[in-house]
Amino acid sequence: MDGKRREVLRAGGGVTLLTLLAAAGWLPGDALAADWNKAAFETQSLDATVKALGGAAPTQSKDIAFVQTPDIAENGAVVPVGVTSAIPKTESIAILVEKNPNMLAAVFDIPPGTDPAVTTRIKMGQSSNVYALVKADGKYYVATKEIRVTLGGCGG
C-alpha cells in the first residue's frame, strides 16, 4: 500500500519536472521528433536520398575520408564507420549503405564549432558500397568505400 503511494508520488513528481524542463526550453520536446526526415530514410538510391534531404546531385570529393572503417567486416550487424570531412563549412554528414533496404543510415548535423568528424556503428545486410554524403555551404559532396561483409563461419 505504502509503496504504491510512493510510486504514484514519484511518477507525478517526475512528470512535473519534465514539464518544467520542457517549459524552460531544456528539452527539445516534440518539435525535435518532428525533425525526423521520414522521406529521406525511405529512399533507395543515392540521388533520391540527396533530393529528399533537399539537395541536388552530389559531387565526388577527395576531401571526405573514412576513418576507423574496415575493408572487410566480419559481422554485418556491427560495422564501425567513421567519416571526416576536410571541406570548409561542413554542415552535415550522412552515411548511406547502397544495398541496405533503405539506404540512409544516419544524418549528423554539424553546428559551427563541432569538428566535421563522426564515428558510429551501422548494420549492413551484405557487402556493399558505403557512401559518406557531406553537405557543405549548401552543396553536397560524396565519397564511396566498399565494405565486404563476411557472414557465417567462413570469415576471418
Binding site: 544516419a106 563522426v118 551501422i122
Partner: peptide, 15 residues
Amino acid sequence: VLAAQWGPAISKNPF
C-alpha cells in the same frame, strides 16, 4: 553541439 537523425540501420546499442 551535435544533432543527428538515425534510421534503423544503426547497430543495436548504438555508439
